[in-house]
Design a binder for these strands. Structure first.
Length: 288
DNA sequence: AACCAGGACACAA
DNA sequence: TTGTGTCATGGT
């Protein structure tokens, strides 16, 4: 009905499981409408729709170059090559079968970092609510199709740094408010620069993130994996811990050190990808 | 109505 | 290094 209002781009791509990708808990700003998945990437409203032979993308303003979009969506990734590195054990293959086509996006570092600082000890639906509240109150309105409900970009680190703790707590984030504000301040005043991390080694990049308030091993690995492309970063949360103990340790409880050593050795160069398949498989199917 | 959520942190042993 | 209590808030 609103076809003339949007500009369309088509990415021919096989094996793209859009639903699994957007609902697997790696990103929190997408919502499913009748016409497709809608979200905001870098201040631009986007609608995504899966077709038989690729990904249909709608934007409000015409796109002269779409490399940034292909990069975000990771449409050029050779997914088969990634999946072929997974260990051939039964649970891993079951996860691949159930979530086939799931991809790890390449998100904006600050938005990803902030989202996962807010994620600690929160359910995914609540994280989505907090992100939406934050965007509505402190983000910028973005251009949307005529008659469409208003949408807002994720607020900049600078804007968050200028929020009071009270304003942040009003967005339902509770004790995470001082963490988010302090990290935003460090990024704003130049104490830490995220733009260099993708040129560093995994351990060096991780240590930079670990110095930020509210960032521990789990959140650091999420940001390394979801925003910086460290495909071997392996976030260990309560779900993955339970899954690994059950599937690979015969139900025994193991220490964090044992778990970390096992994951880096067992899941290979794309361990983070394997982790996301196991995580989503566990949360959606959850039989066993 | 309890229980727990894609944890981090300070502190103890 | 590993274990415990605490921190808000609301979904299931």
């Amino acid at each position: 009905m609103n076809e003339e209002q949007t500009h369309r781009i088509f990415f021919p791509v096989k094996n793209y499981n859009l639903n699994a990708t957007l609902t697997s808990g790696q990103v929190f700003g997408w919502h499913q409408q009748l016409e497709g998945w809608e979200g905001v990437i870098d201040s631009k409203w986007i609608r995504l729709q899966l077709t038989a032979d690729g990904l249909q993308v709608e934007t409000v303003t015409p796109m002269h170059e779409v490399k940034w979009l292909a990069h975000y969506l990771q449409v050029e990734l050779d997914l088969e090559a990634v999946l072929s590195t997974f260990p051939p054990d039964e649970p891993m293959q079951a996860a691949v079968k159930a979530c086939y086509g799931l991809r790890i996006l390449r998100q904006n570092p600050w938005e990803c970092l902030a989202s996962f600082i807010l994620s600690s000890s929160k359910q995914i639906v609540q994280i989505q609510q907090i992100v939406k509240l934050l965007s509505h109150r402190f983000g910028q309105p973005v251009a949307v199709p005529r008659g469409h409900e208003a949408r807002y970009s994720f607020p900049s680190a600078d804007r968050i740094a200028r929020c009071s703790e009270k304003e942040l707590r009003a967005c339902k984030m509770g004790f995470r408010a001082p963490y988010l504000k302090a990290t935003a301040q460090q990024l704003t005043d130049g104490t830490v620069n995220l733009s260099q991390l993708d040129r560093m080694g995994l351990e060096a990049a991780r240590s930079v993130l670990l110095d930020l308030p509210g960032v521990g091993h789990k959140i650091a690995d999420c940001v390394l994996l979801f925003a910086f492309g460290f495909s071997n970063a392996f976030p260990i949360d309560v779900w993955i811990r339970q899954a690994l103990e059950e599937l690979y340790f015969d139900g025994r409880t193991v220490t964090q050190g044992q778990l970390q050593e096992y994951t880096v050795n067992h899941f290979g160069p794309y361990a983070g990808y394997a982790q996301q398949y196991l995580f989503h498989y566990r949360r959606t199917i959850k039989h066993l």
